[in-house]
Design a protein around this nucleic acid. Sequence first.
RNA 1: GCCAGGGUAGCUCAGUGGUAGAGCAGGGGACUCAUAAGCCCUUGGUCGGGAGUUCGAAUCUCCCCCCUGGCACCA
Length: 517
Amino acid sequence: MPKTFFITTAIDYTNSAPHIGHAYEKVLADVIARYHRLKDDNVFFLTGVDQHGQKVQQSAAKTGVPPSEFVKAITQKFAHLWKKLDVQYDEWAETTSDRHKQVVQGILQRLFDAGQIYNDKQAGYYSIRQEQFLTDKERNPDGQFGAEWGQVEFREEENYYFRLSQHKDWLLSYLDKRKDAVIPDFRQTELRNAVEKLSGDLCISRPKSRLDWGIELPFDEEFVTYVWFDALTNYISFAGYDAAHSTLNSQPSVFRDKWPALQIIGKDILVPAHGIYWLIMLHAIGFPDDQMPQLLVHGWWNLSGAKMSKSAGNIVDPSVLIEKYGSEALRYYLMSDIATGQDADFSEERLIERYNADLANSLGNLLNRTLNMAHRYRDGVVTKAGGDSPLARQAADLVREYNGVFGRFEVHAAISRLMEFTTTCNTYIEMSAPWKLAKDPERSDALDHMLFALAEALRVIAVLTSVILPSAARQICYQLNIRDEFRLADADWGGLPDKHHLGKPVPLFPRIETTEL
RNA sequence: GCCAGGGUAGCUCAGUGGUAGAGCAGGGGACUCAUAAGCCCUUGGUCGGGAGUUCGAAUCUCCCCCCUGGCACCA
């Protein structure tokens, strides 16, 4: 049985509504997942939501509903957005589900039995108003805690800790051994530097008196587990991992067939969450080095250079953009205007610019003018004539380069290759001047030859575009009057049958008119 | 303060030793199948600043400035 391509995204926190950064990550994962489906791989794409924790508990309390209801509403917003964006996942992770809870508790119990989790007391300053311990970061320059914290008292609290530092040397050696543990490579350097400075263990619990919206520790009912073992475990709990088996080999085949995963995360949660805590957790529960997940770290969309944040009031709501421009326009912009791993500036004007230039004027118009000419000159029937088309070679190059850049997750580069090919086709039309050929009966073959090649080129474009713009690709197929099932093998030149009858042209990407923004 | 990324044409970016590039925007042209789209040509940059290595530096070295992220310090 062939290995499954397993891809995950970070699970989103159900404390507030999704923004453009959430959408970017999921679309990126979706595009990579679709590329693997195109290659006929088995694909298991896991995404979901993180529903526990203090902020959820607080937000729920503020709106006067139980946490379970509060998260249900926000969860729906996320799920609804993914549907609108055509994000096609295979499994949906919700951390309040029973199967997840079982795995989390099973892992905690095993680590506790193995002495990897221990109980300890810690003392510090505690803000009663904010319900949290304060660190030195919260102090004012004069060393005092500001008035925003209300009454601050010295408190002692018992908690459970995971022996993180015990695995530091292992993590260093793992990172030295595996050069592509993290992509891009400069992120791996960043992680390596951070690990070297690692000291101390990881607090993994909260007493229920402070936080009860979480998963109870199996060995102490006075506590729930805090963040890490809850959220990070989703990557295996929803893939069929069984906590009762301590070695990977004894795991059920549903899990073994999938793992390890390619995990897509934002640069903000590489250090320490995924790069340190998660890798060490996996190591501690018995995952061998060659079964560690690969971390693909993406950058952020900034707004005029500034970080997007709720407090700055500059959140971009993806739902609004979808309503204004459509899902495909947003997908295209998010995939084309940022280099994987880098940051980019988000701009609605730029979205419109790229949509009009690439999709409407270049690709959409190529389809439209090709079909129009085929109907005008040949009643919609394209006929094989003459020898090889110059486009055939170009298309083969395109497919090769497309596969190359996708192997490196450079979706933006794949798009720019596609656009280059589209321009090649448009140039080819200008050079061949079919409107002149049509007036000369002696050059009838030349006209057939080029119309057929253009239709074939569009068929190839549809196949390759399908991972980025699934709906548009289907519409191209519909207009070409061919099957809208996509496989990479179909991107080879020569799939269009002789005497094929093309469908009617309908503008695929109507231009976005920019009277005023 | 430490680590990392970035500072290249109006905008978004590519380019890691050999005469400054792409897309978009701007300007001009020929055409007309097409979503007033497409195609061709073209304006435009002291490559953040300074010093150095070199026959030659956007590219290597050093210093400095600015932006971004992480970590630390600041009690």
